[in-house]
Design a protein around this nucleic acid. Structure first.
Length: 385
DNA sequence: TCTGGGGTCCTGGGACTT
DNA sequence: TCTGAAGTCCCAGGACCC
């Protein structure tokens, strides 16, 4: 299989080119754009500066000019403000991203129909049977895709082409933004092995720290390890994966269709809420989360057999509790009752900064209606106070 | 300087069954 | 009747990704 990874650069506001800009912030604390004006129509004076932001939240993405200050995705806004107080802060606009995402993916589908979604701005493509997909190692089709995306959306796109998904994703990172990188197996030693371990998709901060503690700093260091040693120190599954990945091996196919495994909603409060003193406010948020989930389930056509809650306290300790039901539920009331029962099993002795509700073991509503009558909530649950 | 939201997958322990 | 091994399921937590 010839895999192809495309990652579109969504942060493109013409009047902000070259300026340090970050997107992010808590949902309730974001600066709001002026009425009636899209962000790309706003004068620069209307943008908030990072130094004036006081709420909670993290950075969703940042311009390359902002990254020069050490700012990056998932960084706390307060830390980013310390690094670059004059950076401009934009609110996230997921509706707009989703719109551009749909357009970007449709352009690709029209050219290469075997596509795997990897979030709002990234996709894998199987180039094997795309007419002309092999010309110049895939560069011809990559240029065509870049051109079409820019013409129809104004967005730029970084593309990596390689023999498998793992390497295609890494290739796409080699030349950003708006680049095209073709990676062959023979390039492994020269282009991949010198990279820091954390550059590989699947090696996060924890694993990177552990690798560093063993004196393994680059992907070449991992490749030089004995597979049994990696398995002994990183576990059967992860150790074997590290070894295979460091050698550029990845057998995964392009997945063009998948069913959701879980659906969740969670919210971080502007200030920590106490389970007893702020009980009314917490109850209100809890109910709203369940209502949103019921709406999500309805929109997607699913029901859920397992209902869970998630708490994060003021020490950032996260607790989850699940409850499995004998019959699937879909209404806000049923979800709220089950989640309330799960909550009873959780420790509630510290102020909370986050509350979430999660639905899993999903079944399609069409399948439920065929063989299972709607459950009676009175049979399934105790009352929740 | 504290650390979002929505996901997937993996691991390990305990309960339960065979 | 008791015990232990093995398999399976559920639950909780954690790592990781976009």
């Amino acid at each position: 299989m010839d895999a192809f990874y495309a990652s579109v650069e969504l942060l493109r506001y013409p009047q902000l080119t070259g300026l340090p800009v970050v997107i992010g912030g808590g949902r309730d604390a974001q600066p709001k754009p002026l009425d009636g004006l899209a962000i790309d129509q706003l004068p620069l004076s209307q943008f908030a500066r990072l130094r004036s932001y006081t709420g909670r939240g993290v950075i969703t993405t940042a311009t390359y000019a902002a990254r020069k200050f050490g700012i990056g995705s998932a960084m706390g806004l307060m830390k980013a403000a310390a690094l670059c107080p004059d950076a401009l802060l934009l609110p996230t606009d997921f509706e707009r991203y989703r719109d551009y995402s749909r357009r970007f993916k449709q352009i690709i589908l029209d050219i290469a129909p075997i596509m795997e979604n990897r979030g709002v701005d990234e996709v894998f493509i199987d180039l094997t049977n795309v007419p002309g997909g092999q010309r110049e190692g895939g560069r011809v089709i990559a240029r065509l895709i870049q051109k079409q995306i820019f013409l129809e959306t104004g967005l730029t796109c970084s593309i990596g082409i390689a023999p498998n998904k793992l390497l295609a994703k890494m290739a796409s990172e080699l030349d950003k933004p708006n680049g095209i990188s073709v990676l062959f197996e023979a390039d492994l030693a020269s282009k991949i092995w010198p990279l820091p371990c954390k550059k590989m998709n699947g090696i996060g901060p924890k694993s990177n720290d552990k690798l560093t503690a063993f004196g393994l700093h680059t992907l070449g260091d991992i490749a030089a390890c004995d597979t049994h040693w990696l398995i002994k120190n990183f576990g059967k599954s992860y150790g074997a994966w590290l070894y295979e990945s460091a050698h550029g091996r990845d057998e995964r196919d392009i997945v063009t269709h998948s069913e959701p495994v879980s659906i969740s909603r969670e919210t971080t409060f502007e200030r920590d809420l106490h389970p007893k003193r702020d009980k009314a406010q917490l109850g209100e948020v809890f109910t709203k989360l369940c209502e949103r989930l019921a709406s999500d389930l309805d929109n997607k056509g699913y029901q859920a057999k397992t209902i869970g809650i998630k708490l994060r306290d003021d020490t950032f300790q996260t607790t989850t509790r699940d409850i499995s039901l004998t019959k699937p539920v879909a209404s806000a009331k049923d979800i709220r009752r089950a989640a309330g029962n799960a909550l009873k099993r959780a420790p509630l002795n510290r102020p909370l900064r986050l509350l979430g509700v999660k639905l899993s073991r999903l079944v399609k509503t069409s399948d439920v209606q065929l063989d299972t009558p709607a459950p009676s909530t009175l049979d399934l649950f105790d009352d929740v106070d």
